[in-house]
Design a protein around this nucleic acid. Structure first.
Lengths: 347, 347
DNA sequence: TCTGTTTCGGAAATCGTTTACCCAACGGCT
DNA sequence: AGCCGTTGGGTAAACGATTTCCGAAACAGA
């Protein structure tokens, strides 16, 4: 019966195998400078005792912890969980573990999470900063001794490399698409507007409207179903009702869709709808919803690859996309044409 | 300018503060046996140097790593990412970090992940076993020196405590609900049927049908949209077409919904639809889809709470649900009545 | 046989923290 | 003054792996 108390140590293995600790250590790490005979023997003993090297001790000797930290607003959010999944895959390919924490977009909680991760001596960090400008965050990042990559939202001044999708261009392109469809009053529903990404998308919308000499109409009030209902209803009953809606985030898109559906407004006939960010059932609902899609997994993957590149030098064997070594990696979005913007016939 | 090379150590802090390492250590851990004056002084020095204790060294002295491991099939899956979010919250409340790995339902990868986590000396583990019966997994769990909790799928013989939703009762209740609606030919679409959860749901369906003296008709062939289309089309054109569909997992529900929509079959008039497991837009699509919902976050939360209870004894201050101390915690599902089963008027 | 060169293996220092143990000073008491 | 309890603080030995150095065989060539 195995004692469930304390895991075996290297010297216990050594004693059991009748060799020194050095030999055991060498067997563990590749078996250099060990005769085949002793190698096999020690391996057998290790196997029998169920020995696993204590990472803490290894780390203490100045080695990597083989862990990286990920600080995101929420784990359950599909966008970030996809990011996390991709990052975890890259971490695994690089023999590392991923520690995930949720900041809930609270700068204070974010700092605390970072500090804890640092004290755990993670080899590197990926973070989606709650506030791109935060001085406290910048201070922390400056004195950091491990590489950091920002995702989704860059840190001001490119203090750390960032991987983001091209929110500006995506939104501009989406707006242009609506314009080309011939819509005349395109209203932009921003949802909450404190985030960097939303700001970029607003800029893109404004830019497109401006080049078309059309008035940019932004509504920042939509926070939930009720506010969406209120906003849309008053627009419809007011003068010059919109003939197209551009929603800048997922939840806003869904609220708008539900309200339009409830009000029996024809999409896209009466009002067209285009959303920023794809979501699982966008193609299942009727009419299916056109969106600007972000390369979600790619963001997580590239961020992690960049991180390991910094850790290993150029040894990024696992890097699949050739990303220019730069402080800001901007990944392209793409328009997915479905029905709600008027692109395909009916359903 | 701070050197970005090596983080400061306890003895460096001690030297800078003109005290011994013991004092510094005491200051870090609560400041017992230190005069207020030195305490403040040392704290200032720590702050100034940006000192953070090296967790690895602390762990080496036999302390907890303050990390727990989570092994799930996929991080991006909404079910498991919600679990993970809840578990992370509990971990944070217990001053611990959560390490997440993805097994992709591959027993081999699962074992490897577990081994890696163990070698990192996590304090405890939460795992959704790919295969409840696996001998290799059972062997590993048996010789483990840290507590483990299984989620979603129990390990055979209650080798470790498990937290699952009541798949059997949920499916039976759902089927009964369809029966009470008066549907006469209720077909069960299982999707892939290798998982424990699906088996339980099949049992539930069978039990309900049997008590109603109705023939259980199971179809295990639906794996994607194409197979769903084929299956449903042949059922409809065959003799005795079904008047209700009970789908046992999310993706199957969605495939079925899309196919019915494509074929212009009236839901629930011609065919009713009930799904197991809720999903975000189930209430947004038209008709909205009735489902048996699982207490997703609760599974993750309770699992983590159970884990920390085992770690701390009864000190589970953070435990909110009073869960009987038992090897198998079964959480109730609930029926969400929407339109697709014929419950509410139109949409 | 002697020397030089591999090859294999061990002893011991080291990483940064905690902690058991020891020590000094202080003050109050008889 | 002598004694003792209390309080604040230091010394050094762990913890478990890696790694540097060193030594002992083994072996070949002369």
């Amino acid at each position: 019966m195995k004692k469930r108390g304390t895991p075996p140590t290297v010297s216990e293995v050594a004693r059991a195998a009748g060799v020194g600790t050095t030999t055991v250590s060498r067997v563990i790490n590749g078996g250099d400078r060990v005769s085949p005979k002793t190698l096999a023997h020690v391996q057998r003993v290790i196997e029998a005792m169920g020995y696993r090297p204590n990472q803490a001790a290894r780390v203490l000797k100045g080695h990597r912890t083989k862990t990286i930290g990920l600080v995101i607003p929420s784990i359950a959010d599909p966008f970030f969980s996809s990011c996390a999944e991709a990052a975890q895959a890259v971490a695994q390919a690089n023999d590392s573990l991923l520690i995930v924490t949720a900041s809930h977009n609270d700068p204070h909680s974010e700092l605390e999470n970072l500090n804890i991760l640092i004290s755990h001596r993670v080899d590197g960090l990926i973070v989606a900063p709650a506030n791109s400008q935060s001085e406290a965050l910048r201070d922390l990042l400056k004195r950091l001794s491990v590489p950091v990559i920002a995702v989704d939202r860059p840190v001001a001044d490119s203090l750390v490399p960032s991987v983001v999708s091209d929110n500006f261009k995506g939104a501009r392109f989406g707006t242009q698409h609506l314009i080309e469809h011939g819509y005349k009053r395109i209203v932009c529903l921003t949802g909450e507007s404190t985030l960097f990404t939303i700001h970029e998308r607003m800029r893109g919308y404004r830019a497109a409207m401006e080049s078309a000499a059309m008035p940019a109409i932004l509504n920042t009030s939509v926070k939930d179903y009720r506010s969406a209902e209120y906003a849309i209803q008053s627009m419809l009953s007011g003068p010059n009702p919109p003939d197209a809606l551009f929603t800048l985030k997922n939840s806003t898109t869904i609220y708008a869709f539900e309200v339009l559906q409830k009000l029996n407004v024809q999409i896209p006939k009466t009002i067209a709808l285009l959303g920023f960010d794809d979501f699982e059932l966008a193609s299942t609902v009727r009419p299916s919803i056109s969106v600007i899609a972000q390369p979600v997994e790619e963001i997580g993957r590239v961020a992690a690859e960049l991180l390991f590149e910094q850790l290993f030098g150029i040894r990024g064997v696992h890097t699949q996309t050739r990303v220019k070594r730069s402080r800001l990696v901007t990944l392209e979005t793409r328009l997915i044409q479905r029905s709600s913007c008027g692109c395909t016939p009916a359903p």
